[in-house]
């Protein structure tokens, strides 16, 4: 089989580009630990409260150390449960200071959902039976819409929240 010399040049260039991309993302993933979320931790979708993180009192924002936060969320069609405010109303906004490290932990009680803090790298599938977990440093301030980005039924587009970085 014959290859024109320019085709060789082109394929070497193309292959080198692909290898370069793989080296960059491979280095970031395996040395810097920036894998996409994957924790392979399971949970009973019909009894999420059995897991401490998802007991009603532990939902929403908790500061676990200086500048370090955990946010626990239970997703269900068509709502994110971020816990309750002091006055008993449902929390809809999570407020964290700029530069803080936030661990988002989400699970679903029913169907498949998405969880994206739009405009950040926090973007996960949320599936019944699994715990989705992603830690992110909130580098940029602003109001970020939390959207369900996987179709979960006819009220899918009404499932949202807000993360405010101040």
């Amino acid at each position: 089989m014959h290859l024109h010399k320019y085709e060789k040049v082109w394929l070497v260039f193309g292959l080198a580009s692909l290898v370069l991309f793989l080296l960059i993302i491979g280095f970031a993933a395996f040395w810097k630990g920036t894998h996409p979320q994957s924790h392979i931790e399971t949970i009973d979708p019909q009894n999420v409260e059995a897991n401490e993180s998802f007991q009603p009192d532990n939902l929403g924002l908790t500061e676990v150390a200086d500048g370090k936060y955990v946010v626990n969320i239970v997703a269900s069609a068509f709502n994110y449960d971020f816990g309750k405010e002091e006055d008993g109303t449902a929390t809809k906004t999570i407020r964290v200071p700029k530069g803080s490290t936030v661990l988002f932990q989400v699970t679903s009680k029913d169907v498949v959902h998405g969880f994206q803090v739009a405009g950040t790298n926090v973007n996960m599938m949320v599936e019944p039976g699994h715990i989705s977990r992603f830690e992110s440093v909130m580098k940029n301030d602003g109001e970020f819409t939390v959207v369900c980005n996987e179709y979960c039924g006819i009220g899918h587009h009404l499932m949202f929240g807000t993360v405010e970085v101040y």
């Binding site: 024109h4 320019y6 082109w10 260039f13 580009s17 991309f21």
Partner: peptide, 25 residues
């Protein structure tokens, strides 16, 4: 024979494609 076919234009075209891929990535 094939190796002497002039494919200069082709090389430039595919390189433009390659650079577009690099820039987007």
């Amino acid at each position: 024979p094939k190796e002497e076919t002039n494919l200069k234009g082709t090389l430039i075209m595919v390189m433009i494609v390659g650079i577009a891929i690099l820039v987007m990535w």
